[in-house]
Nucleic acid binder design. Sequence first.
RNA 1: GCUCUCGUAGUUCAAUGGAUAGAACAGGACUCUUCUAAGGUCUUGAUGUAGGUUCGAUUCCUACCGAGAGCACCA
Length: 575
Amino acid sequence: MNIQDKLKSQINEALRALFLKADKVALEYPGELIHGDYSSNIALVLAKGLKKNPRELASQIVAEIQKNAIPEIAKVEVAGPGFINFYLSKQFFATMLAEINKEKKHYGWNQQFKGKKVLLEYTDPNPFKAFHIGHLMSNAIGESLSRLIEASGAEVKRANYQGDVGLHIAKAIYGIMLTKAEMPADENDNKAVVAFLGRAYALGSSLYDKDEENKAKIQAINKKVYARSDNEINELYDKGRRWSLEHFEELYKILGTHFDYYFFESQLANDAVKLVEENVEKGIFEKSDGAVVFHGENYGLHTRVFITKEGLPTYEAKELALNRKKFETVHPDFSIVITANEITEYFKVVMKAAEQIFPELAASTKHIGHGMLLLPTGKMSSRTGSVITGESLIMDTIGRVQEKMAETNEKREKGEHVVQEKTPQQVAVAAIKYSMLRQSPGKDIVYDMEKSLSLEGDSGPYLQYSTVRAKSVLEKAKSQNVKGAVTFLPSETAEIEKLLVRFPDIVERAAHEYSPSDIATYLITLASAFNSFYAKEQIAVDIPEAPYRIALTSAFVETMQNGLWLLGIETPESM
RNA sequence: GCUCUCGUAGUUCAAUGGAUAGAACAGGACUCUUCUAAGGUCUUGAUGUAGGUUCGAUUCCUACCGAGAGCACCA
């Protein structure tokens, strides 16, 4: 039985002794650590029905608890309007530190999704187009959620769905055809190739909007891509698709992510048309102006086109087919799709249609929308060119980290500070991912390049730095042959210990709420508490408190590394 | 116009219906003979407006004001 269940049963016993009963006894963490380790509002909840003074009732409950208190409880008291605050014993925290150091990598894991297979789809970049910041966000969130769910006992499968057919491809191919002369001579020069594709898409896209003639040409290419009926187009298509996909894999490596399944729109187009047409007969879809639509109005949504009058499936139809295909190939218990918020309303319509066709699949599918990335000046626009691609963001950040590291090293007197080659990349990825994960998913993020690069305060590098510094203390202890132990207890329980004990709860809730930001917020608090401790107390020195402090530092390192892992962030050896 | 999301310090974000609304950045003042100062300590400063529900509302409900996204053949 964990400590929370023990405390709850103490409360329940006290209530029974007072001939009272509560439907549910809730324990919460007090907002301030000085208010104890756990708190219950049970007296406030019950007082109303009993027409009693809440503080008085709380005192009675406390008196009962004190009669047969368990050893883990150091103190129980009434506070504020009638809260019952529990203070746990030093021995309890000592035992927990030993526990954390024993569980190591798995400290904080839980079993809430035990026996489940969960499929997550995220990132979803489009071949021929840049890997932009939206994809980076989807990836950061999706990877973190995957790890949270995995840490909750599920078997996790990662999927990436890529739009390798559709009008955007036709626009890019049209652009390529017009600028063939500029095609990079060296096809292995990834950077040049990607830049070339980007320019080609931009050109095709602007011509599409410019006049009807270009528009018609692009639409013709679009049909040919679907039909694979034109050799020249096929060749450009295959080449461009391959370039893009190889490039994406390089980025995934840097980001520390990988996929078990890849789905492509091209594989779904035929299925999509068939699936929709089959259900026209059943009355789920209707013909309208030559197109096939789903009348979402009947369900409080809006109407969307599933098959165009050209006979081509839209995003909606392909999404519908994808939903089925995922269950057919992966057989998950749940399927989670992570995309930008702008898709949210379409997705509702698609899922409403899916509900009519395969209700059990639709019921096991969940959409999570993430916000857009805005510049302080407003939304990024591909037309005005105020676009930072995901790739350029990563590269610029790595560059800035290198500068920062050089500056810092100059200030340091001991020059023998060895830093691994991959560290700037680890730090840069941490800076970017943290800035995307620190706030609730679903909200837009105002991205301030300078701030993200400053690497200070509320940031990924701060978390890494705190961890690295603690690790170096452990190194020092090791070299002095001082081992961690929880035998000599401190005179007072430190704030950091109280926070360490909360980690499993934080993980469980973050996974349940699909909210990596809970982890981020917690880690900042934890790191900050450790940094205060570090500044105040000496750890690896020859004093009786040293073994306990080392055990504490070690538990901090384990917890931080686990938390950072859940965010998809690596911990460097040194920085 | 309709639907959805959202309004918290100067700025960017927190706060399972609970206690004195927390951080970070920016501003001001301190702090390296010590284990990494990318650190620590102190300090100024906020719940859009008006009602309602509740012992208690940043949180739930209603209206208004303001911002963003979506609303038929693009994804």
